[in-house]
Design a binder for these strands. Structure first.
Lengths: 221, 221
DNA sequence: GTCTATATAATGATAGAC
DNA sequence: GTCTATCATTATATAGAC
């Protein structure tokens, strides 16, 4: 019973043309970015004519907006679903949100780089749900943090999104597609290990901090 | 004595047209990505005609290759220079390389997302220099790592590159341009704090690891 | 070395038939 | 709802003058 690609359990062939176009656009935007993705390419991937894309969505920009809005809606739906099933009270809202965005993290990351205004709001929301987690981790440490929680939460999220953004290079170096089940598992294990161990001793960090004041910071492009 | 933008100490006006075009291209590629950047825009930014761009570089693709090669060369030059001055044996080769790439991290990150083959090699080199650092940190921990060094080094680099990649969103959330001197300093402090403290207790990490086996991994786009 | 003018290709937008 | 055909725009590539 190999059924090809599906969306929410439904084989793509069974979706309305409108939904197929939207899903094809999501894939193409994720893979190539908004600019490089073409209406013709999206139409071909969806198995329809370019004219039908225009009929349903008006313009390329409006198509992007529709995909953005739909992805956001799906993430919120998934989040609510996971929170409802609520088995994993383990790590609080952060892990729920991470699990909810997982199927869309590639699209999300790319849309953020492509400066999609609708998706931009999601970054702020991710920072919001990450903050309590940082606060919780702060309770376990001796020395006081040198920068505020929100800053660290924001930096941490930018870093986490680097993984799907550089998936091609990660996959090449690791020798496994990071979007495959095995690759995804490997990344998750690596992240857990990274998150649960300090890479720098407090002393080294302090000395590096001291060196920061001495060094010549160069604004960069 | 405000002298406008410079390259290696030389005011841009004093550079040859060829060099000005190359620098303008680097800025435009960093800002807009390869696809969205136009030869016309680059020529205008360099203060020359589009025809001259073609005269010096042949095609847009060749221009990209030239910029890539030049950035790589500059990074290696900077790295050698820093290694020679060698005051900061503090943090090993990793921090040295970070310092070398700092002025170009924006270009680097964007070029990696844009799948530039020449820059792709730099990602592998970053992983190479990061591995010893991971090994060094491993010596300080009690429990054995659950994934190999190279995997963690690769993931860590992908994460670090997330910062310049999402600079626009980071800057918005933090309220300061992360490419400005103050912003750069704030990010550096945040990274040092993040790198020197565990965010997850070993127990929590273990329980999350256990949950990984139970959960349903979804391949993502 | 540098510019202007033009050719060509790709793409988004549009109109109209079925 | 869906397709085919066409237009308009934009960007790259090219040729040739100065």
């Amino acid at each position: 019973m190999s059924v090809g690609r599906t969306f929410r359990g439904t084989p793509l062939d069974d979706l309305t043309a409108r939904a197929r176009i939207r899903e094809a656009a999501r894939e193409q935007f994720t893979e190539h970015g908004f600019e490089r993705a073409t209406i013709r390419g999206i139409a071909a991937a969806a198995g329809v004519s370019p004219g039908l894309v225009r009929h349903h969505f008006g313009s390329k920009q409006e198509l992007r907006d529709a995909v953005d809005a739909h992805v956001l809606q799906e993430i919120h739906r998934l989040g609510a679903e996971i929170a409802r099933d609520g088995d994993r009270g383990d790590l609080g809202p952060s892990i729920v949100s991470r699990t909810a965005i997982r199927p869309y993290q590639g699209y999300l990351a790319r849309a953020l780089v492509d400066r999609s205004p609708i998706i931009a709001t999601m970054f702020d929301q991710l920072v919001d749900v990450t903050e309590p987690w940082i606060a919780w981790a702060d309770a376990d440490r001796g020395d006081p943090p040198v920068v505020d929680r929100r800053t660290r939460a924001a930096v941490l999220n930018a870093m986490a999104l680097g993984v799907p953004l550089l998936h091609a290079h990660l996959s090449r170096v690791l020798g496994v597609d990071v979007f495959s089940p095995e690759g995804d598992r490997l990344i998750a294990l690596a992240l857990l290990d990274l998150y649960s161990h300090a890479l720098l001793s407090p002393e080294l960090a302090a000395s590096a901090r001291a060196g920061l004041e001495a060094g010549t910071p160069e604004p960069a492009g």
